[in-house]
Design a protein around this nucleic acid. Structure first.
Lengths: 329, 329
DNA sequence: CTGAAAGCGCTTACAG
DNA sequence: CTGAAAGCGCTTACAG
């Protein structure tokens, strides 16, 4: 049985759909008696207005698309949670899509989001190429990048100072006496590029030149520990491992355990994201806090502003990273 | 600028909207030449069909509502990930809502989901009362419960054998020599009730009678460690703590650390969910695997079946729990 | 204060 | 094979 319609409500209390609509939307042209009658009828038959019909008319769906790599990464769970907190208060809902770090899936998800006529979009793009954003611009959908920027295109974004993240890690590890540092990096998104750049440059400034064998890019859908194993099997003897994110750092912790390395005595490990659990791992993980939740909050705020005032200038927020020293380094 | 419409496409290549529609939907009444012309025009102006208009016509939105407590709990991240994997392959998308364990927010989210005319719903209900489900039934929306059942109403669900989860924990802890076990439980959802029942009954069967002071219910939005502190401050001397879920167990681990208890020497700890991180905590956490991801998969499969064959009987799946013994007990 | 009518963007009988 | 028309469930000028 199809859901009740406005027509059903109108019929039940003997008014026109126009009047029923006005009564339910609290327009002031309706007499109190009529309004009461309509509300009662609507309640009795459990009427719930259709966002589809409303959206078709108004041009807005009250739905925000959120396109991330995967919600299984607690970093994004934190971000999404921040987004949700903000948009919910303004009557918006979240349509969640995942790219799983695959360009193709990202593109497919984007199509879905456009079909659903989301009012706006918050996304963490898979790669640093502009195709996806160009499509969004072409379709005139307001969007905000979160966590990762795409440098070749003008847009709003909320990111961490990723160059500094890399530099900060290098400085910390150098200070702890490490110069044989393996960098376990993500695939080619811009944040990964910047962190690498900051990391290598800082190492170099301190006289440590790391060849390409010291940088491993983890293939999508693969446990980071295999990248570590690959390095070890190639004869590398890292005294520390710096990971693109805590998720990878946890995998590295697992890999080191498997190969009977002690952390931090044999090998130090550090990550990025300051996930909740990192305070409780064995050993507690040194990491860099990049304000995950805050990123979600800010990106949502910017998007809402764009929705309210379409002429808003692009806004760029770069949050300062903060070292969280624990016992893994 | 509003998105391109079918009318725009039709105008651009000089056909009627009817023909344009048929060409784009691969209906076989269209001549190849016309079809090509239409597809070209659609591509040129970046036409993306409106799900709103389609949905209004067809009565289906291709959107599945997912209503959980919070995506920040990795258990639900796993579940949602499983759901997503299944529904995506069938052209469905996920509208994600959170209740934050509040009845009121759950109800509000439900309204939103109904307004958006989701084709179906997968939810982890906040409490074990039937109001929410009655509303769904009244609105004739197919739904599947995941993780938590509501016993007073006939429905489809995918859950763990929660009584057994509690019993299993009790048996394991008894076997390790514990009879002063503090149960840190969730608020009154049915899984929590069942786990408690299984736990207490098994303890009793082994001659261990635990008074109500040995069961603490964690208030919503509060770190579980405070419930532990409360018990300790009341003079309880637990030799072990069993937690409703790993999230709480992690918080307990934190609390014990804070109060300088050694785990498992001073106090043993165990949780439920077998979250990824539990293998890497200090110490690695003993837990019970309840097949989080699989729950998502199965619940989505059932929902899809209901969508395809509305007359499908209710289906109940009770997955067997499995003890994962690590070093925290 | 209320109703009939038009229209939001689609799809599909119904004619031709 | 193609088009004009009706309708999905709403909202809002336009009359009255």
């Amino acid at each position: 049985m199809a859901p009740a319609t406005l027509k059903d409500v109108a019929k039940r209390c003997g008014v026109s759909v126009a009047t029923a609509s006005r009564a339910l939307n609290n327009r002031n042209e309706v007499s109190p008696a009529t309004r009461a009658k309509v509300l009662k009828a609507a309640d009795e038959i459990g009427y719930v207005p259709s966002s589809l019909a409303k959206g078709l008319w108004s041009g807005e769906t009250k739905v925000i698309g959120v396109l991330i790599t995967t919600i299984e990464n607690p970093f994004y769970a934190n971000v999404v949670s921040g987004i949700e907190k903000v948009v919910k208060d303004h009557g918006y809902n979240i349509l969640l899509c995942s790219s799983y770090e695959e360009v193709q899936q990202e593109f497919a998800a984007l199509t879905v989001l456009l079909e659903q006529r989301v009012d706006g979009l918050i996304l963490a793009p898979v790669q640093s190429k502009p195709e996806v954003l160009e499509r969004l611009q072409k379709n005139n959908v307001p969007f905000v990048l979160v966590g990762r920027n795409i440098p070749s295109i003008e847009s709003s974004y909320v990111v961490s100072d990723d160059f500094k993240v890399g530099a900060m890690a290098a400085e910390h590890l150098l200070q702890q006496g490490h110069n044989r540092v393996l960098f376990i990096n993500s695939s080619r998104n811009y944040s990964a590029e910047l962190r690498l750049k900051g990391f290598l440059q800082t190492m170099r400034q301190h006289g440590v030149e790391l060849g390409p064998e010291w940088v491993k890019t983890v293939p999508v859908h693969q446990d980071a520990k295999y990248s570590l194993f690959e390095a070890l099997d190639q004869g590398l003897k890292p005294s520390a491992v710096f990971c693109f994110c805590d998720c990878m750092a946890l995998e590295i912790l697992g890999g080191l355990k498997e190969r009977s390395f002690k952390v931090p005595e044999d090998v130090a490990v550090m990550g990025v994201d300051n996930l909740n659990v990192t305070a409780l791992t064995d050993p507690p993980l040194t990491t860099i806090d990049i304000q995950n939740y805050e990123m979600g909050i800010r990106s949502a705020e910017i998007l809402l502003k764009k929705l309210q005032e379409p002429e808003t200038q692009h806004m760029q927020i770069i949050l300062p990273p903060k070292l969280v020293k624990r016992n893994s380094t």
